[in-house]
């Protein structure tokens, strides 16, 4: 995964960048399977690797396929990234070891979910019962966010009379409107 990320930094052909990001998502999905998060892996493979890549390819079709070489110096970003990374790694030294059953995150609530959710909800998949029942409002909020994003996309790319359509120059669109009036 780190290799794909570095390749994305170096490459200038945006098409390969997008395909690499799809591969990156797929690798992430297989990592989730190894970490026993099967539901997350399923979502990442379909939504992350599938729909995102598709959306980005559609954008590339409308815009350009090559990135121009940047004139800016990379010294400042590099130093910021290295300092931040060092601080974050220092922060991880306090974290519980990977796979520890007594980590604070694994002590509360979870026992109850594991013992009771089968009886209370009647679904064997604990993730589903938490998602749809115990944290139902959270999921409602998520759908509101998606709805808002959909409205935003429609407003930005809308095909109404008063909108400039993607792929047309603004000036032409304005002229057409004046002709119609």
């Amino acid at each position: 995964m780190a290799c794909t990320a570095f390749a994305i930094i170096r490459l200038r052909n945006l098409f390969s960048v997008v395909i690499l990001s799809g591969i990156f998502s797929l690798l992430a999905a297989s990592l989730y399977v190894l970490l026993t998060a099967v539901d997350v892996a399923f979502t990442e493979a379909s939504v992350g690797a599938g729909i995102s890549t598709l959306l980005m390819l559609a954008t590339l079709a409308i815009t350009s396929e090559y990135e121009k070489k940047s004139e800016r110096s990379t010294l400042l970003p590099k130093s910021i990234v290295i300092v931040t990374g060092a601080v974050l790694i220092y922060g991880t030294l306090d974290m519980p070891l990977y796979g520890a059953a007594d980590a604070p995150a694994n002590l509360h609530l979870i026992q109850r979910f594991i013992e009771e959710s089968g009886k209370e909800i009647g679904i064997p998949n604990i993730v589903t019962s938490i998602l749809a029942s115990y944290r139902g409002y959270d999921t409602l909020g998520e759908t509101v966010v998606i709805f808002t994003a959909a409205i935003g996309v429609l407003v930005l790319l809308g095909h109404g009379r008063n909108r400039w359509r993607p792929g047309k120059q603004p000036k032409i669109a304005r002229d057409e409107q004046e002709e119609e009036v």
Binding site: T43, L55, I114, A149
Partner: peptide, 20 residues
């Protein structure tokens, strides 16, 4: 299972923001 649920939500929201 709790982080799995949170991340499921986050993935879908992430795609919505990417689309925007």
């Amino acid at each position: 299972p709790l982080p799995h649920v949170l991340i499921l939500t986050a993935i879908v929201v992430g795609v919505a923001t990417t689309a925007l």
